[in-house]
Design a protein around this nucleic acid. Structure first.
Lengths: 221, 221
DNA sequence: CTTATTTTTTAGATTAATCTAAAAAATAAA
DNA sequence: TTTATTTTTTAGATTAATCTAAAAAATAAG
């Protein structure tokens, strides 16, 4: 159990995991290069190595998928990342736009008992400060079905429950607009001209947001 | 401020720092090799690099000392290590013999605001679970004067306030003998034959400990 | 169904950290 | 104060992760 991989290997596994979303399970070399801020040639080298270790299924020129082992490893890193984010916000008082980079380092600390104790200390949270679900210690993810505001219809309502963009600049904006997690919204108008959307926030104030913002805020209907 | 060094560089700085104790301020290549579990040749290479960066004063064949910059960096790592140890014991419920290795990883996480917030969260502790003083955010260390039990005289009394050996096997033994931090002791006999020492623990129970154990338990008189 | 473009891989180098074996310097012993 | 021993450094390799430039494969366009 708990085979240990290098810092770099872990980052590649995580990148592949995040790129393997629903429909798009096979991931390309270039996608990985972009996500890891490396060049395609470097990715190819690493893919050979990960395939050798049975962490990915890799066929030359065809892209990669994670094996069960690789997926377990990736989910475990995600679990650690998200638990540390909860710690940073809930216990140390960081804001939700400040924790991503620190968690990016903390996620590589290797101790199963540490992470399980942290989980208990935090009260076994279901989601991180951005609404992303935290895998339990068996690796199971209880994902609520969320839709982008940009995919909602007129007169539809729901509660903001996540985001799909984690840059500080975006998160600060969302906060300033009062669209933090838990906020209830009702779509009042879909503006055809530029795709922007008008909504009522928490039953009272009116607000218009751009399509770009709407695409990155996730709602539970 | 807060120049960032590699994981490995940090470990060398820390090793040199711990080896530069009081009387012995100049540290040798072999000492560093032993502490870092590397070979002398590797140490020489790294010393050149650290000297180049002005973190150490290094003269070939003569040994090294830390520069002010190097010492600051080292103290900061020690601060992080000890604060994380407090966190692990006080908040996550680890035992004092379980935290060293995890803190060894956590000490390399790089974020000044993280560590200062952690410090506050923990109530700005003065010492770690082994009694070692925690440098404050300016790098100042408020070290209490401690003596080894092996250096005490008959009829002398004091309070156990630290250890100088961190292996799990030693710490578990100390705990089993009821000689944890805060315990009051009175020396009743110095046994000439093998250097072992008899003492009264917390005013009641009698105990004899070997010289080897006595050397690694520190007392505030 | 060729040709052009894009994507991916290979080949060959580079950097950081390490090693072994041999040479050089410092220290200890005779 | 020579000789022997120990310590330290140099020389030359190795491994992991990366890069650029060129070659090969896959995909898209004409």
């Amino acid at each position: 159990m708990s085979n240990t991989h290098s810092f770099t290997e872990e980052n590649y596994l995580k990148a592949i995991y995040h790129l393997s979303t629903g429909n798009n399970s096979v991931v390309s070399t270039n996608q990985i290069a972009e996500m890891t801020n490396t060049k395609a040639a470097s990715v190819t080298d690493m893919l050979k190595k990960l395939a050798e270790k049975n962490l990915i299924n890799y066929i030359k020129y065809q892209g990669v998928t994670l094996t069960d082992t690789g997926k377990n490893a990736a989910v475990n890193i995600v679990r650690k990342h998200r638990l540390w984010e909860v710690f940073l916000v809930e216990k140390l008082g960081f804001k939700w736009d400040e924790v991503h980079d620190i968690a990016e380092e903390l996620e590589h600390i290797n101790s199963e008992s540490l992470i399980n104790r942290l989980d208990d200390f935090l009260g076994n949270p279901a989601a991180d400060p951005h609404g992303d679900p935290i895998p339990d210690r068996s690796g199971t993810i209880h994902q609520k079905k969320l839709v982008r505001i940009s995919d909602m219809y007129q007169d539809q309502s729901g509660m903001i429950s996540g985001v799909s963009e984690y840059s500080s600049i975006f998160l600060k904006l969302v906060e300033k607009m009062g669209l933090t997690l838990g906020t209830k919204i009702l779509i009042t108008e879909l503006i055809e001209f530029d795709g922007s959307i008008t909504l009522i926030v928490n039953g009272n104030s009116d607000r218009t947001i751009s399509r770009e913002v709407a695409k990155n805020i996730l709602v539970m209907l």
